[in-house]
Design a protein around this nucleic acid. Structure first.
Lengths: 219, 219
DNA sequence: GTGTGTCTCACGGTTTTCCGTGAGGGCATA
DNA sequence: TATGCCCTCACGGAAAACCGTGAGACACAC
């Protein structure tokens, strides 16, 4: 009998982790060897231990799955990573694959997909759950395919400190005037940052900024 | 041997449901007799079937747990309801208990708490998980207890169909003019809905609306 | 049949956002 | 030292959002 596939699970919901463990343990070829509730825990765990597969939730407080993925990639061994997405982070898929994600499953799909995904990526075959595929398809036919994602995500981390501050405040319903007071800046200056953000993030208005902040866990 | 406690589970994440089922089935006194992925499914299910306990997620698309709870209460039989909260909906606890919620558990706590909660409320003892208790405590000492939450959350699910449509569009960066075109309405009318939303949801601007939509999984 | 609520629209006014453009100072690095 | 990037601020104008108020039509419930 060959060795079992060693899996580590990261999600901020203990209940979900327990559920996945219970499910995975019904499969003879898979063994859960650890879990983490935060991004930091994941990195810590992999300092001292190892697993073949990391099932990684995108949405976690503090250090989110995206950030973990990025840091992981740098010193990546032979581990494969499956991203768990809570809402449809379809736009992120392309970007995250470049960072080394090997599979995507949405939490809304049945648990058996996790087992499928694990076995698939373990055999070097990327796995995408059906709704992710569908989302990608819709994205492709709905708008231009070969543009947005790249420059948009490229800009993602190219925000300056001030821009980031303003972005956070915008997403908290503050007006330009209020932000100026809070940051001890001129209203004009805050407006400049706002304009810069609109352009960089390629959104139409403050709502777009707020949604961006949510998606990227800036707030 | 006495009859098992019949449980119905409602959550929009299939994986979570499967996990909870796997866990609950390890307990001899509990039996999962059904599950739902949406609020509507819950109501439909209880039209034809019955359970002792309903484990109800607060955050579900379309008809959320709060609304289900309200409608449920009206024609409630002897069922007990345990609310599953994903983020700390501490402010809602008081209100939801008045609507008939018998227990609260946060998804961040271990799964065994669900079992405890089920047995507890089945014996007519309300159950609150530790972090919910802690949250309530912090709320109590941190700020005034008996204020805001009521009017704010009361409005929560009392949005009309049109308001909900507008809310969705606002959260997608559409301007009033664009919404008017899309909904075949006058700009004035759309503005009316927008104003109504601002008041009902007690937010300051479009960003507030968008954030509300995100929190309540309307988009 | 009288109220309650939703949907629809209007008007006038204030405030805020959005847009373009320009510009000086500081700091790093090529 | 020159180039580039960031931070800071300004002005003027167009567009949109925000605010209050009122009102007609329809439906449903008490």
């Amino acid at each position: 009998m060959k060795e079992k596939i060693k899996v580590h699970i990261a999600d901020d919901h203990m209940i979900l982790i327990e559920g996945i463990i219970a499910m995975l343990n019904t499969d003879k070829e898979i063994k859960v060897v650890g879990y983490s509730l935060t991004g930091m825990q994941v990195l810590d765990w992999f300092e001292k231990n190892n697993a073949d597969i990391l099932v990684l939730d995108i949405n976690m407080p503090e250090l989110d799955g995206i950030e973990v993925l990025k840091r992981f990639n740098k010193k990546k061994g032979h581990q494969r990573i499956i991203m768990l997405s809570s809402y449809d982070d379809v736009k992120l898929v392309k970007e995250l694959t470049t960072y080394g994600a090997d599979g995507f499953i949405s939490k809304t799909c049945a648990g058996e997909h996790i087992i499928k995904a694990i076995k698939s990526v373990y055999n070097n075959t990327p796995y995408f759950s059906d709704d992710i595929k569908e989302g990608l398809f819709n994205l492709a036919i709905g708008q231009n395919v070969a543009d947005g994602s790249k420059p948009e995500s490229k800009a993602t981390s190219s925000l300056t400190d001030r821009e980031l501050e303003v972005l956070k405040l915008v997403a908290q319903e503050f007006s330009t005037q209020e932000m100026a007071n809070q940051l001890l800046l001129s209203v004009n200056t805050v407006e400049t940052y706002r304009k810069s953000l609109l352009k960089k993030l390629n959104v139409k208005n403050a709502v777009g900024l707020a949604m961006y902040a949510v998606k990227h866990k800036i707030i």
